[in-house]
Every structure is written in C-alpha cells, then in structure tokens.
C-alpha cells in the first residue's frame, strides 16, 4: 500500500471539508471584516440535526434515497435560521462598534450554541446511521471508499454552485460590491442589510452541507465538534487569504493535505519525538505563521488597500 498516496487522498477529502467550512468564514469576513467565530458551531448544529433526522427517518423505514435529502434539507433550514438569528442578535447591533465587541459576542454565541446542543442532544456521541453500505476501491495501491468519493463530489458540487452564485448572479454581484466598499455599494442602491443577511444564509447553508458530510466522514457527531473544526477552517481561510473565495478553497485543501501528511510523517521528521497526536497542531502553527509573516495569505489582496 502506498502510504504517501493514501495520505494525499485522505488529505484531499479532509481538505474539501475544511474548504466548505472555510468558505463560510471568508464570505462573512469579506463583507463585514468580522471573524464569525460562531460559524463552527453552526456546522456542529448541521451535523447534529442531519444525523438525528437521518436516524429517525431510517428507523421509520423511509428509504435512504429520500431520507438523505430530507436530513440535509432539515439541517439547511435549522442552520440558516440559526445563522440569521446570530447575525441579527449578536452582530448587527454592533456593526459600528470597535472590532473586539462583536468578537466577544461571537464567543458568547458559540458557548450558547454548544451548551444548547449539549442540553438538547446530551453529552454522548451521535453515530451516523449506516445507511450506505461501505465499499472500498483500490486506486494505485491506496484505498478510497464510496463514502469518501461521495463527500468529494458533494463538496465539489456545492463549491461550484457557490462560485456560480457569486460570479454570475445579481446577488453575487451585490455581495462583491459590498465586500469592496460597503458605503459605496449602499449609495449605488445595494441593500446592504439584505446582502449581509444573504451572506449569512448562504454561509449557514454551506455549513449545513459541511455538517452532514463531516458527520458521515467521521461517522459521528458531537456537541463540541464545532469549535476545533471552526478554528481549523478559519486557519484554512487565513492561509488562503481571508475574504478571498478561491483562497478559502485552496487553503482548505492545503490544510487538509498538510495535516494528513504531517500526521503521517511527523514521527519520522522528529525522530519519534512527536507522534501523530500532534496532528491538531499544524492548523494552529500555520495560523500563527501566516498571520505573522503574510497576513494577506496566499491569494489574498492586501486588505488594507481598501481603507
């Protein structure tokens, strides 16, 4: 079995999940210059809702082909409602406040969402119902499962859809204009509040998709899965260039590959001193290094030029 290829494939799949979540961060940042700290929790909500709806439906005998889309739809609805509420309650009143105020409310909202989820679903792990029979394929000595392929396809389709939305539609144009300069866009007749709400809707819908896919990837969902995931996805967005949509894709994929390769090889690299449990460290190291040495990220334009 080819270890390098295997790690690359794993990294790519993990990375596509990070990319999906990173998009949510980057879109909001592009428009509001706000780190939507609670985004990871929205992904968690998506995962919890989709897993529990899927479990309930399959238990009731609904066929998988129907149950899966229904579970996804439920997750999208709940995530969108949550996302919009968060924007309304915690961010909009503070839109002209100093940067730190909305960051602190965002942390508060994260704690609230996490604990509501814990009270609602309990502390135990929810396991993803085995609705799809796992098949494993052999690709050049590495293995890929049908679930992994499905994840990759759905993630790619979702991101393609987002790119179309942003580049080809009126809403997308309004979003880009608002990201360029909120005041001017407002003067040009763009309803800025609507655009911001739409951004949260789209971002939360992406989070719902990501939640379902992540739950299927790991086979479980848990009330505190959102935090670290959100932080990693944020790191990915920063790596690619925060505010930049292709950057989030690139950053997500890169982070996935780096983590996966890093976890595989860190033992060899450090002479056995550090083991694979240090996997989580890469995202934070990248975050610190990128922010310190190249805050604009790989594809980011210089954010300050806009000011």
């Amino acid at each position: 079995m080819d270890v390098l290829l295997q790690q690359l494939i794993n990294g790519l799949i993990l990375g596509s999940l990070y990319a999906l979540v990173a998009l949510g961060y980057t879109m909001v940042y592009g428009i509001l210059e706000l780190i939507n700290f609670a985004h990871g929790e929205i992904v968690m909500v998506g995962a919890m809702v989709s897993v529990s709806v899927l479990a309930a439906l399959t238990a009731a005998g609904v066929p998988v082909a129907l149950a899966l889309p229904l579970a996804l739809a439920a997750a999208v609805v709940v995530c969108v409602v949550t996302g919009v509420l968060v924007e309304r309650i915690a961010y909009r009143p503070l839109r002209n406040a100093p940067r730190l105020a909305p960051l602190i409310t965002a942390i508060g909202v994260s704690i609230v969402l996490q604990n509501l989820a814990m009270i609602f679903w309990g502390r135990q792990y929810l396991s993803f119902p085995p609705v799809i029979e796992v098949r494993v394929y052999d690709v050049l000595g590495a293995t890929v499962s049908n679930i992994q392929i499905l994840i990759l396809v759905v993630a790619a389709l979702t991101m393609g859809g987002l790119l179309l939305l942003v580049n080809r539609t009126r809403l997308g144009r309004a979003m880009r204009a608002t990201a360029q300069n909120r005041e001017v866009a407002g003067l040009m007749g763009v309803d800025v509040n609507r655009v911001i709400a739409a951004t949260f809707i789209v971002g939360s819908a992406l989070a719902a998709v990501a939640g379902l896919l992540i739950a299927s990837y790991y086979g479980i969902a848990h009330y505190n899965m959102g935090f670290i995931l959100g932080l990693k996805a944020f790191s990915a967005a920063v790596l690619g260039g925060i505010g930049n949509i292709p950057g989030a894709l690139l950053g997500g994929l890169l982070l996935g590959v780096i983590e996966s390769l890093g976890a595989g090889y860190i033992g060899d690299l450090t002479g056995g001193f550090l083991g694979s449990h240090y996997q989580d460290i890469f995202a934070f190291l990248i975050l610190i290094l990128v922010l310190t040495f190249r805050p604009s990220g790989l594809l980011g334009e210089r954010v300050a030029d806009r000011a």
Partner: peptide, 23 residues
C-alpha cells in the same frame, strides 16, 4: 497584528500549549 487577528493567534497559542501538555 490587528486586534481580532491577535485574539485568534493567542487562542491558537493556547491550544498548542495544551496539545503539548497532553502529549
């Protein structure tokens, strides 16, 4: 770094320390 970036970097640093303590 600007305020919110600094916040995130310090958060990352805190997590790194904890990962090391754990491992």
């Amino acid at each position: 770094l600007r305020g919110d970036y600094l916040a995130i970097v310090t958060l990352g640093f805190g997590e790194i320390i904890r990962i090391f303590l754990n491992n």
